[in-house]
Design a protein around this nucleic acid. Sequence first.
DNA 1: CTAATAGTGTCTGTAAGACAATATAAC
DNA 2: GTTATATTGTCTTACAGACACTATTAG
Lengths: 258, 258
Amino acid sequence: MTEADFLKAYDPAAFPRPSVTVDLVLMTVRGGALCSLLQQRQDHPHKGSWALPGGFVGPDEGLDAAARRVLAQKAGLPEEEAPGGWLEQLYTFGAPDRDPRMRIITVAYFALLPEDVLARAVKTGSGLQLAPLRLAEGEAIDAHLAALGPDGTPLPLAFDHEIILKTAVLRLRGKLDHSPAPFALLPKRFTLRALQDVHEAILGTPLNKPAFRRRLLDKNWLEPTGERESGTSYRPAELYRVRQQEKRSVAVQGGMTL
Amino acid sequence: MTEADFLKAYDPAAFPRPSVTVDLVLMTVRGGALCSLLQQRQDHPHKGSWALPGGFVGPDEGLDAAARRVLAQKAGLPEEEAPGGWLEQLYTFGAPDRDPRMRIITVAYFALLPEDVLARAVKTGSGLQLAPLRLAEGEAIDAHLAALGPDGTPLPLAFDHEIILKTAVLRLRGKLDHSPAPFALLPKRFTLRALQDVHEAILGTPLNKPAFRRRLLDKNWLEPTGERESGTSYRPAELYRVRQQEKRSVAVQGGMTL
DNA sequence: CTAATAGTGTCTGTAAGACAATATAAC
DNA sequence: GTTATATTGTCTTACAGACACTATTAG
């Protein structure tokens, strides 16, 4: 056994290497619901089921770079531009049988994008869909998550992508209060009410307005622009923007702004 | 470009696959300090520097299984036994140049083990060391982390292992209050004082005793055993144990008990 | 003016920090 | 008893939830 371990450790080419991919959970909030971009599989295995967009990691490509590349390809985001999104490594899934064709280890990322960006991606690509995610009550990791189709019925999910989606939703919930990530779901200038709507959609529960406002403003992450929203038939709300410094300040391995 | 992408996605064998390893941050608290097991490299590259124990992921081996195997090999833990530790996937590091020999993507795990288990591992193996970790003040990810040798000077760390260690420490700090993981650093029965010492070592700051006690007991994770510690020259403290149910209850992708 | 929402003030309950008082075991 | 620490009680402060009140804009 020690001999075998020795060989294993010092002659890695002696046994087959796994393929490594990145899979992306591209999320946004639309119509008060947290949604994820899914792509219908055209081939076996899991033909017809819905999968996360992904791609193989190139031989000289970093993991973040691969995630950005897939994001650009699938979501139609030019890599050089700054659409104001968020990208963060989520978790790595590597069960030996997660793909029936061969051994594939996937590094899952999640991205947050403004609604219009993802809506445009859906229209551009084919077999794409922005599916509302419905997570059963309770924060347990073994709770069931459904991605709903246009008719409100759950879509069949390919591979282990339900677990990946569930992990993403729970991670996002956990980070809501401690990370500037959720701002990536809104345009550059937004009202506090819109931000609260985003939080409520992600948590799936209503929040107290004065408390929410206090909490957010006390963090000092936002600054008022002096401008107001327009087009309302009632009192327009102040537009806020994220302080420049907060776009850099990041928690533990906290992801990156796009 | 679309053609190239197509080939990339559908003919993964057409380009070389990366090697995939697991690296383990094996931590414990000793002498009031958070320590990690490090192994001195016997070969180039980084010969003489100190590295995290790790190993290649086998062709039919899951990531968690690989981490457990390396844990058993390096820390001398029999895989079947239940020493009361904690194992959790940390983050995946895959910069193309992180290893000069070849492309290696590593899935980092961190483990928490009682002090005596790791101390035994250090004595058994060779070139092993349990190094106190000192993190510069401030939670910033770009702060410097040093692993101290026996003479108190920082050890040179191999590859990107400083970043991995830093990530582990920050992750552990963040989970302290929300996860039953820290209990893995103590024996099965322990006093609240010992638990507070562990928390203080990890956070690097003293805590308020009554508040700590209230917080922990209010979580209802612990139950008194009715027994007292022995061998003290003063009033012995009550011994607590973790409720059985809490060993299962786990937060978001929260790791596993050993 | 009315309608509708923005934004604020205030009360209350919960939980943490600080500090002190009491309890208990070894000697 | 003394000593050292466990364990509990209490005061104060900070903050979140609840609710109501005031402000502002369109029409």
